[in-house]
């Protein structure tokens, strides 16, 4: 099985811990001739492929580099000559051109935002329930992953992102809860609701995840 990442969200909805276990890096570099076969748009301060998915470059990928120089926002960060990426790409004289595309990596800010976004979803799922006394979201299935969420009685949420074929991660979530109780809560220098920065917790979590990846999730 593959475990992608672990998130811990505090009672008040803040992200207090995140660990990316095996998130693959997806990048493609290629030399293009004019006109460009991908349609690009500028959104959320990134240049994104909107259409024209081919040769490993997918819709949703971000333009990362032009002729070896990194792209930041819509600017090519060429040391001597920073230029607007769209102007460069629209001019046939700049071709052939080497472009690097890739799946955007999540920034810490984005992770904090996503954690706070999950919090109300969890609550609304319970509010919209057609049955009385329902919990919030316990698992969520998507094309590319499965999410498991375990909420403790004290309101802390443990969230696990695993590959889609994986079922039944409850046991593993409980083990992570135990590690949290041991290495975060019993650590006198850890204050509640604050981000967990404990090496012992992280290293134990890492070995737990490695062990369950090798031996299967039910063996933990």
């Amino acid at each position: 099985m593959v475990i992608y990442s672990v998130y811990i969200v505090s009672k008040s909805g803040g992200l207090i811990f995140n660990y990316d276990h095996s998130v693959p890096k997806i990048e493609t570099e290629k030399t293009y001739s004019f006109p460009l076969e991908h349609k690009l748009v500028y959104q959320n301060k990134q240049i994104v492929v909107a259409f024209g998915q081919r040769n490993g470059v997918m819709v949703g990928h971000v333009l990362l580099g032009v002729n070896g120089a990194p792209v930041n926002g819509r600017t090519i960060e060429d040391e001597k000559n920073p230029r607007d990426a769209f102007e460069v790409l629209e001019n046939p004289e700049n071709y052939p051109i080497n472009l690097k595309f890739g799946r955007p990596k999540m920034s810490t800010n984005e992770k904090i935002f996503l954690a706070s976004m999950f919090y109300p979803l969890f609550a609304i799922a319970s509010q919209l329930s057609p049955q009385p006394r329902t919990s919030g979201i316990q698992s969520l299935e998507a094309d590319t992953f499965r999410l498991y969420c375990f909420q403790t009685l004290t309101g802390v949420k443990f969230i696990l992102i695993v590959e889609p074929s994986q079922t039944g991660a409850d046991l593993l979530l409980h083990r992570i809860y135990e590690l949290y109780a041991d290495y975060a809560l019993k650590n006198p220098f850890y204050s509640l609701e604050m981000p967990i920065r404990c090496d012992l917790f992280e290293s134990n979590l890492q070995s737990l995840l490695e062990q369950s990846e090798k031996a299967g999730i039910s063996s933990v």
């Binding site: 997918m58 990928h61 799946r103 919030g136 316990q138 969520l140 998507a142 094309d143 590319t144």
Partner: peptide, 18 residues
């Protein structure tokens, strides 16, 4: 999502359970 959605399905999301 840790990966690209290659299935061509629009939603990405199928179901959740409580």
């Amino acid at each position: 999502s840790p990966l690209d959605n290659t299935s061509g399905s629009r939603e990405g999301f199928h179901c959740y359970r409580t």
